[in-house]
Amino acid sequence: MNNNVTLPRSLGVLRIPDASLVDITEINRFGPGEICVISTGSQGEPRSALALMASESSKWLAIGPSDTVILSSHPIPGNENDVSRVLNGLVKLDAEVVHSGLHDVHATGHPRQEKLKTLLDVLNPEWFVPVHGEYRHLAANARLAQSTGISAERTVVCEDGNQIPLDDRGVRRSGTVPAGHLYVDGILDDLGSAVLHTDDTVTADTLQRTIRRATGQFVDQRTRRRPMIVPVVVET
């Protein structure tokens, strides 16, 4: 979070006077109406600052009736339970909670095409390998790069497991390596350099979470409706 504020301030994109920034250790010197806290945790991450506040586990902040909490994001499919847990925790503390299900407060973290074009124009890369997203997103990103002048021969669209050597000849696909889902039955504190293999035996709890996540993603993609009802598999 510090980096996300420091970098745009140094570039002049985020204009916040030094006098308006307060270290978290000093917020008790101010009244509730004088402080705006920018926090991690909009996706309900268990150890994020917002989740700790919602569970009354934060050593810095105690949420109460005088506080308003704004979540400026949609829950990512699969994170609904974690986000709901945080929302419920905040409401139990009598905070006013504002989220995208109630008001238009969603602030996307994804740039639009014109901003991506600007980035490509500034960087002017010799090679382009789009990452992050499903294959259709990668292909669309590749076409966008080609529209800025990067040749198709220097645009490499990959899938999970593709090997991409980078040498004097450039960038290319060269073979594949195993890349799939890995289920860990239990808790591993330190994987170290151990090689893990998938197991045919998956615990019921792991299977239930996998089914819930897959079902939630399917329903969200098909209906685009919120709230979304996700069936829960109960072992009998």
Rank of each mutant, 00 (worst) to 15 (best):
L182H: 06
T25C: 05
V83A: 04
H74R: 14
A139D: 11
V157Q: 11
V232C: 05
L207H: 03
P77W: 02
V131Q: 08
C158E: 06
Q217E: 12
S100C: 15
E126K: 13
E114V: 07
F128W: 01
A194F: 06
L50K: 00
A145L: 10
A140N: 14
T203D: 09
L93F: 01
I35S: 03
T198P: 06
G133F: 08
I70G: 04
T215Y: 07
G41H: 00
D104Q: 14
I24E: 11
R85W: 01
L188Y: 05
T68R: 11
V129H: 06
L207W: 01
R15P: 02
R154T: 06
T223G: 03
S73F: 03
G175N: 08
A95F: 01
T206K: 04
C158P: 05
I76D: 12
V131P: 01
L61K: 03
L14P: 05
Q113W: 05
V69P: 02
N2V: 12
D23P: 03
T6H: 13
G31C: 07
A95D: 06
A107R: 12
Q217P: 00
L102V: 10
N3C: 05
V86C: 00
V177A: 14
P111Q: 07
N3Y: 10
V13I: 15
S100G: 14
L196C: 08
A140M: 14
P231Y: 10
V13R: 10
Q217T: 06
G186S: 09
V83W: 12
H74V: 13
G175I: 12
D168C: 07
S72R: 13
L52A: 11
H197F: 03
D200H: 14
R224N: 13
D94S: 14
P46R: 01
G186I: 08
V157M: 09
D104K: 13
G133Y: 06
E45G: 15
P65V: 07
Q163S: 08
V83C: 15
R226T: 09
K59F: 01
T40L: 09
A107P: 01
